[in-house]
């Protein structure tokens, strides 16, 4: 008797938990957008691992939504978002550093050239 009541209570709590975790629509679309934007960038070149991670988590989030595992779906979507943003940030940093190095080399070459053609004083 008391055991079955306990199960009932636990069951209700479980249902309540399910009902109070709606489908993470906002998180899904934010992750979708961020992961989608990576396709147009050099992220696959400069942050391959994080790009893969974000894509895989977004796919897993979709599957979790289909299976009504809304908590898992929300976590996966939230993680896919930050993974995608990190991939973007890493890419931006890598590109900026690459440009910096190239510009430094180019300036050095220009300086040498200018020095060799400058009037002797």
């Amino acid at each position: 008797m008391s055991r079955s009541v306990l199960f009932l209570v636990a069951g209700c709590l479980g249902l309540a938990a399910c009902a109070s975790d709606p489908e993470p629509t906002a998180q899904m679309s934010a992750a979708e957008l961020a992961v989608g934007q990576l396709a147009d960038t050099s992220a696959p070149t400069y942050a391959l691992e994080d790009t893969h991670l974000a894509r895989r988590k977004l796919e897993d989030a979709h599957r979790a939504v289909e299976q009504a595992e809304n908590v898992r779906a929300r976590r996966l979507a939230e993680q896919a978002l930050v993974d995608a943003q990190l991939a973007q940030a890493r890419t931006d940093a890598a590109l900026a550093k690459k440009n910096l190095t190239e510009l430094q080399a180019s300036n050095d070459a220009l300086r040498r050239e200018a020095a060799s053609s400058s009037p002797t004083r």
Binding site: Q79, V82, D83, Q85, L86, A89, R90, D92, A93, L95, A96, K97, N99, L100
Partner: peptide, 15 residues
Amino acid sequence: RRVQIAEEQAAASDA
């Protein structure tokens, strides 16, 4: 991840 994003963005801006 947010901390790493901040650090990468800082590195990008610095460069």
